[in-house]
């Protein structure tokens, strides 16, 4: 993205890494990217397990009107991201009947809920577009909101990301075991006295927080790259929850670092590289598993 600004990649890896850390904005981008990748990995893993990809995607898109509205009103965009994503999480939780797989899973029957989520999503995007039109004349800003930018991340933003991420991880730590139980088998969990419905709301709020964080780096449209792909890759590699979680987080962080590094040395946007690396890992894992099933 700033390849023209004097950064040159060479085969000297040490020198490349030194160049990466040369500028403060890049250090901040790496910090922010790492924080975001860890949270996205953990929460994304549960999201894939609960088959709530559609709800996650919708929450991510809701960040766009939030940020656009905040810019229009002259407030910090982070307020818009967090406010709108949390609000939408509560709306979706209210719409839903609770339980894993209810949010528009593709294998499901006709679900009224998925139509509702679709409407929330399109309406949110339309509102974002309205705010942009009302604000007038920041068309390149739209692309940054939608497709992400890693330039110009301040120390303050990194701190906010860190605090929110820590809070989200504490909540995951606290509800992790019952959440896993409720995600794998909601009926049995409910019968054993686990508050499935309450957990569903907690998880959606957590998802809202996460996508609000990730959106600020990858842009509204590419949140999925960090949320779904590492988790989906890990699920092809292992069935064990703990290992799966670790693999997911490691993949998310690796993909983010690689994406940032390559985007730094080329004129192309970070979104493309992060999604491409994550997708390559996913395809690789799926193909390996397929081969093993065939041969073994």
């Amino acid at each position: 993205m700033i390849g023209a600004a004097g950064a040159h990649a060479s085969w000297n890896v040490v020198d490349d890494v030194r160049q990466l850390f040369e500028f403060t904005f890049m250090v901040n981008a790496l910090r922010a990217g790492t924080i975001v990748a860890v949270v996205a990995g953990v929460v994304g893993w549960f999201m894939v397990l609960r088959r709530e990809a559609f709800a996650g995607h919708t929450l991510a898109l809701v960040g766009f009107p939030g940020a656009a509205g905040a810019v229009w009103l002259g407030v910090d965009a982070a307020w818009g991201y967090f406010g709108f994503c949390l609000g939408a999480a509560l709306v979706i939780a209210g719409l839903g009947t609770g339980g894993a797989g209810s949010a528009g899973g593709a294998g499901g029957r006709y679900s009224e809920e998925s139509a509702g989520i679709g409407v929330v999503q399109a309406f949110a995007l339309a509102c974002g577009f309205l705010f942009v039109s009302l604000y007038g004349g920041f068309l390149n800003g739209v692309n940054a909101l939608l497709f992400g930018t890693f330039l110009g991340i301040t120390d303050g933003q990194v701190l906010v990301l860190l605090v929110v991420a820590a809070a989200a991880l504490v909540v995951v730590g606290a509800v992790g075991r019952p959440l896993l139980f409720a995600s794998v088998d909601p009926d049995v969990a409910a019968a054993r006295g686990v508050g499935v419905r309450g957990l569903n709301v907690v998880f959606l709020v957590l998802l809202g927080l996460t996508v609000a964080e990730v959106s600020q780096i990858t842009g509204t449209l590419l949140v999925f790259a960090l949320l779904v792909m590492p988790a989906a890759t890990a699920q092809h590699m292992t069935a064990r929850p703990q290992t799966g979680l670790c693999v997911t987080v490691a993949l998310a962080v690796a993909v983010t670092w690689l994406g940032l590094a390559v985007a730094y040395f080329t004129p192309y946007p970070i979104g493309f590289f992060v999604t491409t690396f994550a997708f390559a890992a996913y395809v690789g894992a799926a193909a390996t598993r397929l081969l093993r099933l065939r041969t073994g």
Binding site: A53, A106, V228, M229, A232, F272, F279
Partner: peptide, 21 residues
């Protein structure tokens, strides 16, 4: 499957970003 759909379209959008730039 929605995870497959999600992974594919996130990547496809990533390509879109490249074309846009």
């Amino acid at each position: 499957d929605d995870v497959v759909i999600g992974s594919v379209f996130a990547w496809v959008l990533g390509l879109g970003v490249l074309f846009l730039s």
